[in-house]
Design a protein around this nucleic acid. Structure first.
Lengths: 351, 351
DNA sequence: TTGTACGCGTTATCAC
DNA sequence: GTGATAACGCGTACAA
C-alpha cells in the first residue's frame, strides 16, 4: 500500500515549526548552536509529520551515501554469510547500511558491481572477487576511488586487506596427521586460481616438508567447483595403487561426498582413513565421528575488516595499505586417528 | 586509493561533447528523439571522461533509488541465503541493487531497518520480520508506503506475500511415518511465535489426525532457539515412558543434535528411530543414513516473490494484495523406515 | 543563535 | 531534435 500523502520534506517541517530550513537542518545534524526551544519545536514537528530526511538528497549534498558495498562470490557459503552478518552489525552501529552483491564468480558481473559501487557513491567496499588475477578486474578495483578492504585475495592493489591464514592452518593440519603416522595424505581442493586454494596447497606442501614427507602430486585432487561432486574422485583416490591414509578436504558438500565415498568402500573413519575438513560446517561437530576441522576465525576477520574500513572512511588511517591476518583454528576431533597399521606397532622410543 | 581528480558530471560531458545537458540526459536515458551524430559524440565524451551517472542525483530527481531492501532475521540460515542469491540475481537483471539487513530477531532493529528503507527511498522491500505479531512492527510495515513482499509470515498487512507450504509438507511427512506404522511421533521446533513454527505444528496435528493417530503434546519439544542445543531434549524424549519411534525435527544443527542424541543412546536410525528433517541441509543427502527431508522450493519462492515485487513496483499489479504458495517437497531417504517391531508382523490384508 | 541563498547532479518541461 | 531552465530535498557558507 502506497502512502497517499506526499512525504514531508524539511520545508514542511520548517513551516510547521515556524522556523527556517537552516534550523531544521541543524537539528537533524545535531549542530551545537541551536537553542533548546527551537530544537524542541522542530522535533515535535518532525514527529507530527512523521518526517524522515531524504537520504538521496543528503547523499547528493554531502557526497556520502552512508552505505558500504559488499561483493562476495556467494553468500550461500556459510563462512561468508557469517562474515556478512558481523559486517552488517558493526557497520550499522557506525551508521552505515550495507549493499550485498553476489558475483557468482562471473567476471562481467563483478565489473558491473564495482561500477555500481562507484555510481552509487558507496562510502566504502568490502570485496572478495572471484577473478582476483584478471587485469580488467584489477584495474577496476584500483581506480575504484573509495576506501576498500579486500577479503582473502592476493591482489596487487593499494588497499587494506584481511587475509585468512590458510598456510599456517593447513600446515598444522598436515603436521597433526604426520604425528599420527600418516605418510600419504590426500588433498581435495577446487581448481580455481584464487588465494584460498593456492595458499592451502602451499600450506599443504610446507606441512609435508616440515614433517619430512614427500609431496605426491597425484594425491592432490582439483575439483571443478568447490561445491562440486567429489564422490568419484575420492573413490578413485582411495582405490589407487598407493592410496592416501588421510584426506584434507574442502568442507560442506565436498566433505560430505568424501565421507560418503569412504563409507561406500566399506572403509571406516578414522580407522582406515582420517579426514580433516577445511572449514567447519555445522554438522562437523555433530557428525559421527565428529570431524576434525580447520576454521577461519570469522569474528577476528570481520572485526579487522570493519575496523580498517571505518578508519579509512573517516580518514584516520595511514596512507599505506594495511594487512590483517585472521587465524585458522585447528580443531582435532574424532575423524583423525593413527594411520592404519601403526597402532599395532610399538611406537619407537629411541633412535 | 582515492581518485585524485573529481568525478565527471553530466555537465562536463555536455561541455566536452559540445552539446547541452538535456541531450546528454536523453542519451543516458535512451530517449528516442536524439540524432545519431549527437548520440555518438556524447557516448565518446562519456567514455573519455569515464563518466558514470550519479545515482544520488538520479534518485533525488526521479524519486527512485533503483534499490530494493531485504530484511531477514538471519542470512546465515541457508534457506534465506539461497533465497537472497536468487532475489539479487533476478532483481539485478531488472536493474535493481539489493540492500540486505539482518534483523537478528531484534524488534528495535527491525523498526530501524524499516525506517531506513523509507528514508532511503527503497523502491520496494522483501521482508521476513521476526516480530510478525508485534503491533509496532505491524504498524511500521503497514505505513511503509512502498511495494512490499512478505516472506512466509502471517501478518495482517495489505501486501503481497509468499507463503511456504509448511502445513501440507509436514502433514505429508507425518503420513509417511504413519504409513511406516509409526504411532508415536515427536516434533522438534523452536519456541517462537512465528508462522513457520505455527504452521509446522498445524501440519503435524493434521497429519496425525488424517492418519487416525492421537496428538500427544508431550512429544512436542519447543526449543529456545532454532539453532539451539537439542541434545538433552531429544535424549529426554527418547528415555521417556512411551518414547516416540520417529522424530520430525528442524534441520541443520537441531537435526545434527538429534542424530547425535540417538546415536549416543545406542539407538539406530531408522531401525529404532526414524527421522525427518524440516529443511534440507547440505549434509542430509550425504549423511549415513541419508536423511529424509522436507525442502521448501526456494526457486519457486524466489521467482514468485520477485515477480510480484517487480509488478508492484511497475504499477502493473492489481490493487488487491496477492498470495503465492511455495511448495515443500518431501524427499524420502534412508532415515525413515518401518517402526520398530512392525517388520515382524505380517501386514494385514483384509478387514 | 537564526535565516537566506546557492549549489550538489539529474530529469523534465518548455520553447525554439 | 535540441537547448535553456526549473525543480528534487538538503547542507552550508554567509549575512543578519
Amino acid at each position: 500500500m502506497r502512502s497517499n500523502a506526499k512525504r514531508a520534506s524539511i520545508k514542511d517541517v520548517a513551516a510547521s515549526a515556524g522556523v527556517s530550513l537552516g534550523s531544521v537542518s541543524r537539528v537533524i545534524n545535531m549542530a551545537p548552536n541551536v537553542s533548546p526551544v527551537v530544537r524542541e519545536r522542530v522535533e515535535r514537528a518532525m514527529r507530527e509529520l512523521d518526517y524522515t530526511p531524504d537520504q538521496a538528497a543528503q547523499a547528493l549534498r554531502s557526497r556520502s551515501s552512508r552505505t558500504v558495498g559488499c561483493m562476495f562470490t556467494d553468500v550461500a557459503n556459510p563462512l561468508y554469510a557469517r562474515l556478512y552478518q558481523t559486517f552488517e552489525t558493526k557497520l550499522r552501529k557506525a551508521g552505515y547500511m550495507v549493499l550485498l552483491a553476489n558475483s557468482l564468480n562471473d567476471l562481467q558481473r563483478e565489473l558491473e558491481i564495482l561500477s555500481m559501487f562507484q555510481s552509487r557513491r558507496m562510502d566504502g567496499a568490502i570485496i572478495a572477487p572471484g577473478h582476483e588475477r584478471d587485469p580488467l578486474l584489477l584495474q577496476a578495483v584500483e581506480k575504484l576511488g573509495l576506501p576498500v578492504v579486500v577479503l582473502d585475495r592476493d591482489m596487487d592493489v593499494p588497499h587494506d586487506r584481511v587475509l585468512f591464514d590458510h598456510p599456517r592452518g593447513v600446515k598444522e593440519a598436515v603436521l597433526h596427521l604426520a604425528h599420527l603416522q600418516h605418510r600419504d595424505v590426500g588433498l581435495l581442493i577446487a581448481d580455481m586460481p584464487n588465494r584460498p586454494m593456492r595458499r592451502r596447497l602451499e600450506g599443504f606442501k610446507s606441512g609435508l616438508k616440515a614433517a619430512g614427507l614427500t609431496f605426491r602430486p597425484e594425491l592432490v585432487v582439483r575439483l571443478a567447483a568447490s561445491t562440486g561432486p567429489a564422490f568419484d574422485e575420492v573413490t578413485r583416490l582411495l582405490l589407487s595403487a598407493q592410496p592416501p591414509t588421510a584426506l584434507v578436504t574442502l568442507g560442506t558438500s565436498v566433505l560430505a561426498d568424501a565421507l560418503n565415498a569412504v563409507a561406500a568402500l566399506g572403509l571406516k573413519t578414522p580407522d582406515d582413513v582420517s579426514i580433516v575438513s577445511l572449514g567447519d560446517p555445522d554438522f562437523a561437530r555433530h557428525h559421527r565421528p565428529s570431524i576434525t576441522s580447520l576454521a577461519i576465525d570469522h569474528e577476528v576477520a570481520a572485526e579487522a575488516g570493519v575496523t580498517m574500513l571505518l578508519e579509512r572512511m573517516r580518514g584516520t588511517a595511514p596512507a599505506q595499505p594495511r594487512e590483517a591476518i585472521a587465524p585458522a583454528h585447528f580443531v582435532a576431533r574424532e575423524s583423525t586417528g593413527l594411520a592404519p597399521g601403526t597402532h599395532r606397532r610399538t611406537p619407537k622410543k629411541q633412535s
